[in-house]
Amino acid sequence: MISLSDYLILSSIIFCIGLVGIFINRKNIITLLMCVELILAAVNTNFIAFSHFLGNEAGQIFVFFILTVAAAEVAIGLAILTLMFRNRGSIDIDITSSLKG
C-alpha cells in the first residue's frame, strides 16, 4: 500500500522543482507564475494526503479555499503582466527594477 510518507516526499519533490524553476527563470514572469502554481499544487497534495490519512475533511475544505485564492492571484497577476507589457514593451524581470532605488 501507499503510505503517507510517499505522498509527502512526492509533494516535496514537486515543491523543489517549482523552486528551481523560480531560480533559473530570471527573465520571464509568466514562467515564474507557473512555478508558483506548481508549488501550490504540491502544497494542496500535502493537505489532501493528511486529510485522507487522518480522516478529517478540514484539509479538503482548506484546499478549496487555496484554489479560490490562487485563481484570484493568477487573474490579477496576468492583468499586471499585461499592463507591464503595454507600458514597457517587455516582460523581462531585469528591467523591472524601478523600486530598487
Partner: peptide, 22 residues
Amino acid sequence: GLIVAAIIVAEMTMVLGHEQFG
C-alpha cells in the same frame, strides 16, 4: 538552484521518511 533543491529534498526525505509517517 540545484543545490538548494537537493538540500531541501534531502532534509524532507529524512523528516518525512517511513519511520515518522509510514
